[in-house]
Simulated assay, not measured.
Amino acid sequence: MASADLLSIVEASYRVDLGDAAWLEGLAEAVLPHLDDGFGVAAFEFYRLGDGLPEVVQRCHLGIPDKLAALYPTVFQTMDPEIRQRPFRMGPCVTGSQMMGMRRGFLDEPHMKQYAQKFGMYDSLWITAAEPSGRGCGFHAGRSRLTRASPTQVQQWGRIAAHLSTAVRLRHALKGHPSGRADAEAVFDPNGKLHDAAGEARSEQARDLLRHAVLMLEKSRGPLRKKDPEKSLAIRKALVGGRWSLVDEIEQDGRRYVVARQNEPTAPGPALLSKREKEIVGYAQLGHHDKLIAYELGIAASTVRVLLGRAKEKLGVRSRKELLEACRGKAPGKEE
C-alpha cells in the first residue's frame, strides 16, 4: 500500500455537494496513489438490481495508457456474465486470479491473453463498494504479476468500501434536496455539542450514540490518522446505529458542523425477515463477513450474529450458505 493518507479516500467519498463527474474524478484521484501499479486506475459508479449484472452509470480513467483505456469497455462487456458477478459475491477486495479461482492457470486465461497481457498486465485488483440497495462504485487496477489480496488489504479496503457505498447511497438520496441542515435529524458542533435534533435522533439514547460517533469522527481526523491509520479508519464507522451518515456542513462564516442524515440501506428478501435482517443478509450475500457488516451498519458484531441466527431460524435453515441460497431464491415467503 502507498503511504498516502487512506482517510483522504473516505473524505473524498463524502463530497456529496459535487456533481457526478467531479465526484467520481475526485475519488479516482484519491484512490490512485494506493492502487496504481503502472497501469492507472479505472473508477466506475454502478447500479445493480438484485442478482442482475451491474449497469455502469459513469466511469473515469486515470493514468491508464490510451490504448489500454480504449479496450476497457470491450474487456468488461465480453466477460462471461457469471464471472462479472463474482466481485459481488467475494467481498470488497479481491484480485482477478483469486476471482477466477486459480493461480498460474490464470495466465493462460484467453480473455487475459487477448486483452491485458500485451500491455504487461498479468493480474488485477478489484475494489467493489456494493451494498444491498444496488448502488455503488468500484475500482480496477492492473498488476504486473500474479498476486493475492493480503489480509491487511482486505480489511482496509473493506472498511473504505463501506464508506464508498454508503456515500453513493447518500448522494442519490440528496439529489433534488437542499444542502445544509435541511432534512437533517441532528446537528452537532465538532466538540459533540448538540444544536438540533429531530425524528429518531430526539431520543436520549440516539443523541448519546450520535455524540459519541461525532467525537470518534473528529478523533479519526486528528493526529491519530498519521500515528495509527488503521485505528483512525476503524473508529470511523460507515453508519451510526444502522441509520445515520455523518457529513460536514460549513456555514458562510466558516463555522463547521457535523450533520446526521438518515441513510439506511434497503434490501429485498423473504417477507418472514425483518428489515434489519434483510439488510444483514443482503450484505452477507455480497461476501461480507460479520465484522465488516457491523462496521458498515455501525452496530455490534454480536448483533449481526444474532440477527443472522434469527434469519436462519425463521427460514428453517442451518448454515450461512443455506440462508443465502434461500434468500436468493426469495423463499419461503414472498419478497416485500
Rank of each mutant, 00 (worst) to 15 (best):
R211G: 11
A184F: 03
R145W: 09
P151C: 09
E335Y: 00
L194E: 01
E264V: 12
W157G: 07
H195P: 07
V57S: 09
A271E: 10
A267Y: 00
A21Y: 10
A198E: 13
L273A: 01
S302L: 11
Q114N: 06
L35E: 08
D17R: 10
V94Q: 05
A141G: 01
D20G: 01
P81F: 04
C327R: 00
K321D: 14
F119K: 01
V154E: 04
K113M: 11
Q117I: 05
R15H: 04
S319V: 02
L308M: 10
V10Y: 02
L35G: 04
A43K: 02
D37N: 15
Y283D: 05
P332R: 01
G287C: 09
L27N: 06
R181K: 14
K67M: 06
A4E: 15
Y295E: 02
G134L: 12
A271C: 08
I64M: 15
E336D: 13
G91M: 07
A186I: 08
V317M: 11
K237Y: 12
S13M: 01
K219L: 12
L233Q: 00
G180P: 09
A294W: 03
D290V: 14
Q85V: 03
E322N: 05
E218N: 08
L194C: 06
G138W: 11
E25N: 14
R181T: 15
V240M: 04
S165W: 07
Y72T: 13
A234C: 04
M79F: 08
F119C: 00
V187T: 02
I299L: 10
F44S: 10
A21F: 10
A162W: 05
L273R: 00
H172C: 03
R256L: 13
V75S: 02
R15L: 04
K118S: 11
R145A: 13
L215E: 05
L32E: 07
P268A: 14
Q285I: 03
L233S: 01
E45F: 06
S165A: 15
G192H: 00
V304M: 08
P54H: 13
R89E: 09
A69W: 10
M79T: 09
F76V: 14
R84M: 15
G142C: 01
V281H: 00
K175I: 06
H177W: 11
R318K: 14
P223A: 15
Q58C: 14
P265L: 05
S232L: 05
G50K: 12
I235H: 09
K67T: 08
K237H: 15
F188N: 01
E249K: 05
